[in-house]
Amino acid sequence: MLAIFTFYRNFLYPSTAVNLFSCYIILDNGSGFYGLALFWLKVFTIPLLGALFHLSHAGRLYFFHNLVYSTPRLYTLTALFDLTIWLFLIILTAQCV
């Protein structure tokens, strides 16, 4: 899990930006009306960020390969981790409005 979090730090800033944008939209509207649209936005940006990272850093995954995470496993678990954080923030925000 520590390895996944370490790898996730590569996406921390853009991913946090998407998460905060989603929270802002929900707060601004005062409802979860756009929840589904925001979900698809998140689902779209995760592979986009992954692809951009992979294109520029594909040779830098050996560290994580040594930690038993093959490339597909690494990206899949990181995507799930990112989506979980997004979901947690959205639920938290929705409870506040």
């Binding site: 370490t6 040779g59 038993v68 995470y69 496993r73």
Partner: peptide
């Protein structure tokens, strides 16, 4: 299959192994 997860083999690549910001 994906035998990396058995952690039998470790690999030092020709490139840097440790990520730059770690």
């Amino acid at each position: 299959g994906d035998y990396m997860k058995k952690r039998i083999i470790a690999y030092l690549p020709q490139e840097d192994l440790i990520p730059a910001n770690m």
